[in-house]
């Protein structure tokens, strides 16, 4: 690793091994998403999916800064955050995506509802902004139990324009709850461009209106995301309340499976692909292209194993269709 990288990591208390893990997680997400798209195109999965290719640094930077005792509330574009979370299994992720009984949600949830409550991953959410009010409740649990946990809730630029955003951030602020409001501004709410949906330069500017700290970071720079998250988490653990972080990034793929992307140009996509968070971090680590590609191939291999596991997994039993509605 190049000395400048070693210095930068050391400043943050991170080792070369940590850096390697973070890179591998980003690569695993990339591989999962590419495979998901391929399986979809081949008709081997049904329904819909929302790919986070291009946003990997945002997911990995945040989860690395959090601890396994903390809570995660995720979005519909949540494969990456799930894979980056503590103890997550690509096998169970893929099995859920493929609707199998062995999946995280026994094939009942699918791409938009992957959760693993046992590890404090409180789930992805099919409703834009739907996790925001729930984050208030998680924050209250932490406050009432007087633990030093924090909750991170992820939402997009679209979610930031729901009414729920206002109610939730205000409540977290007045009660000083340990919640990180992590907005992944990937430039589009489906087709609605950020600059058409907001009359402000940064979504984090809204923090002022709630009396909390706001930060905007380059969401394609892993360490910038990590630094912002570390700062916000420290504040939350110290009882200093919530933070609004805007992680500026870009989704390379369409909104979901059937998006013709008439709202943006190929040049724009290309421009953002040049800011590929994986290539950037690999370059920062001083890796050659060949070394990087070899690691990415390993990640793809791991996802192939997940596909094999899923294909060999049983379908849910129709006789159990009524299970899990009521406890």
């Amino acid at each position: 690793m190049q000395p400048v990288a070693v210095d930068e990591l050391q400043k943050r208390g991170l080792s070369a091994e940590n850096a390697h893990e973070m890179l591998m997680k980003m690569m695993l997400i990339r591989a999962f998403e590419e495979k998901a798209e391929e399986l979809f195109a081949m008709g081997r999965v049904h329904g819909t999916m929302h790919l986070s290719i291009g946003q990997e640094a945002s997911a990995v930077g945040l989860s690395t800064a959090l601890d396994s005792r903390d809570y995660l509330l995720n979005t519909h574009r949540g494969h990456g955050h799930c894979l980056a979370w503590y103890g997550s299994s690509p096998d169970l992720m893929m099995a859920e995506f493929m609707g199998k009984e062995t999946g995280y949600c026994r094939g009942r949830g699918g791409s938009m509802h992957i959760a693993n409550v046992d590890t404090n991953n409180l789930g992805a959410n099919g409703i834009v902004g739907g996790g925001l009010p729930i984050s208030v409740g998680v924050g209250l649990t932490i406050k009432l139990r007087k633990t030093d946990q924090v909750a991170a809730v992820i939402f997009g630029d679209g979610g930031a324009n729901t009414g729920a955003f206002h109610e939730a951030v205000n409540m977290a602020s007045i009660w000083n709850l340990p919640v990180i409001y992590f907005c992944e501004n990937n430039q589009y709410a489906m087709s609605m461009a950020f600059h058409r949906a907001f009359n402000i330069e940064h979504i984090s500017d809204r923090a002022v209106g709630y009396g909390i700290k706001g930060m905007t970071v380059d969401g394609n720079d892993l360490l910038q995301v990590y630094d912002a998250a570390v700062e916000a988490i420290a504040r939350a653990r110290a009882g200093e309340g919530p933070t609004l972080i805007e992680s500026v990034t870009y989704r390379w793929k369409g909104h979901s499976k059937s998006d013709k992307q008439a709202y943006r140009t190929r040049d724009e996509v290309k421009e953002w692909q040049d800011k590929d968070p994986i290539r950037r971090f690999a370059a920062f680590m001083g890796m050659t292209d060949a070394e990087r590609d070899a690691l990415q191939a390993q990640a793809h291999q791991r996802i192939e194993e997940a596909v094999t596991f899923s294909e060999n997994s049983p379908e849910p039993d129709v006789a159990a269709i009524l299970e899990g509605v009521y406890a």
Binding site: L73, V136, G137, V138, T141, A164, M171
Partner: peptide
Amino acid sequence: IDTPISEAGIAGACIGSALTGMRP
């Protein structure tokens, strides 16, 4: 807990706390 006029927030506060072990 007295809340602002935020009914979605009240429901969400119940859901999130219940999901994490409380009885709101």
